[in-house]
Design a binder for these strands. Sequence first.
RNA 1: GCAUCUUUAGCUCAGUCGGUUAGAGCGGCGGACUGUUAAUCCGUAGGUCCUAGGUUCAAGUCCUAGAAGAUGCGCCA
Length: 483
Amino acid sequence: MSKRIKIAELLQSSKTGTTVNVKGWIRTFRNNQFIALNDGSTNTNIQVVVDFENTDPAELKRYTTGAAIGVEGELVSSQGKGQTVEIIARRIEVYGDCDAEVYPLQPKKHSLEFLREIAHLRFRTNTFAAVFRVRHALAFAIHKFFNDKGFVYIHTPIITASDAEGAGEMFRVTTLDAVKPPMNEAGEVDFSKDFFGRAANLTVSGQLEAELGALALSEVYTFGPTFRAENSNTTRHLAEFWMIEPEVAFADLQDNMDLAEDMLKYVIRYAMDNCREDLEFLSNRQAEEEKSMPQNERSEMSLTQKLEFCLANDFERITYTEAIDILRNSNPNKRKQFKYLIDGWGADLQSEHERFLVEKHFKKPVILTNYPAEIKAFYMRQDDPKEGVPGPTVAAMDILFPGIGEIVGGSQREERLDRLTAKMREMHIPEEEMYWYLDTRRFGTCPHAGYGLGFERLVLFVTGMTNIRDVIAFPRTPGNAEF
RNA sequence: GCAUCUUUAGCUCAGUCGGUUAGAGCGGCGGACUGUUAAUCCGUAGGUCCUAGGUUCAAGUCCUAGAAGAUGCGCCA
C-alpha cells in the first residue's frame, strides 16, 4: 500500500498515471459512482470514481455523506467537467460509517446559527474549515513577525492574584467549597484558606507582566488566552478570547503605532499569500450572503479587495481632539442623527462615532491617539499640556477597523514613578499590592510602550465573518460553555 | 444589563381576515438512471406549530408570562 497523500498536495504536484492513496471524509456520493472526498487540507474535493458494477451493493450503501474512508487508485485526468484530475478507485476501505438518517450535516447550505449548535461537527463544512485554516495562518504569522524582529515570546500567567489590572470583571479561581466556604471573623469568605492562600482570578491581561519582561529583554510579546466575566452580548465579545500583547522598551507612542500597523499589514499579507484559495472562498461566501441584503448595507468592496486596500493604504492617524472636531462638524451630528450627539471635549466615543470615522469619513483603518486622561487606564503616560487641547491627555492609541471597531488598544506607559503613583492614588489602586510593577519604575525605568490585539477580531476582519462566535472553535459567552 | 426581532418536519422556509385533514424545497427511506458536480426522475415516511396559561363556538395565527436564538447598544480586545 502506497503512503497517504493529502489532497492539497496531490492536486498541486501529483502526476496522472501514478497510484495514489488518499484518506478523508465523504462530502457527497453522486450517481452511485462519484465520491467527493475531503481531508481538510483544502476545500477542493478530490473526485473518486467507483466501479459500482463490480462493487458489492452493501458496500456501496456505506458511502454516505460524512463517512471516513481510505482510497487507493490511479490518478487520471478527468473525463467530466468540474475537475482536472480524479482517482479511479481500486480499493476503498470504510474506516467509519456515518448514518445518513441521523447525521446533521447535509450536502446543502446550513445557517451559521445551526452550525454553531453543532460546533463539534462544523469543522467539516467548507466555511469553517476555511476559517480555521486562516486562523492558523494568522496565529503563525504573528509568531513569525515578532520572532523575525527579535521579540521574546513570554508566557504570562493565566491565574493571577492581582485584581488591579482594571481591564474588566474577572472569573474567580478557587478550590474552596462553593456551598460552605470557610469564613473569617468578619463573616466574609476566608480566602487565606484557598489554594493560593489568597483570592485568585483568571487573567484579563498579560500586559503588566509583559512590561516586566520588556524592561530586561527589550522586546517581548505574549499570545495567550484572556478571560473577561463581562455580560457582553455582541458579535465581537467573548468571555474567553486570545490576545497578543507586545511590549517594547525605549519606544514611544509613534513607535507603538508603527509596530501595530506593520504587524497588522504583515499578518494580513501572510494570509493573502498563504490562504489565497480559502480567502477567495470566504470572499465569495460573503458576496453570496450579502445578496439577500439591501444595497446600502452591502460591502463596497469584496473581502479580498478590502484586504488589498488595507495593505495599500496608510492607516489614518488623528488625535482624539481632532476626531471630536470632525465629529462635531459632521452631517449626522448637525442633523442630530447620532443617538449621542457630540457637544464637547472629554466624553468617550460611542461605537456610532467610531463607525462614522472609519466607515464614512476616512473609509480606512484609523488610529485614534491622545485620549482624555480621565477615560483611560492608570498606566498610560501623561502628555504634556498642549495648545488647543482643553484637558489633560494620555499617550493612548486605539486602532479602529471597519466593521469590527476597536481591534488594538495600546499606549506609551507611564515610566515616571512619581506621576504613576500619584495617578494610582487618584484612582484608588493599592500601591502595596503593585510593588512589583512599581519596582520597574524604581530601578532603571525607561520609556516603553505596548498594545493589545484581540486575535478573534483580527480573524473576523480577515475572514469576513460577522459573528466572533464563528471564528473560535468553541466560543464561551454568557450562558454558553458547551463542548 | 437594556432594546428590538425570531421560534412551524432532520435543515431552510411558506402558512391569507382567527375557520375543513398545517404545506414546499432539500435531506432520509424505496425504486429508476449510470460521466455525475449540493446529479436528475418517480414514489414514500416524517409535526409537542418553543413552553405554560388565557381570550374565543373555534388559536400555528390574538393576549400574558417564561425559555432559547439573532441583531443593536453599553463594557472592551
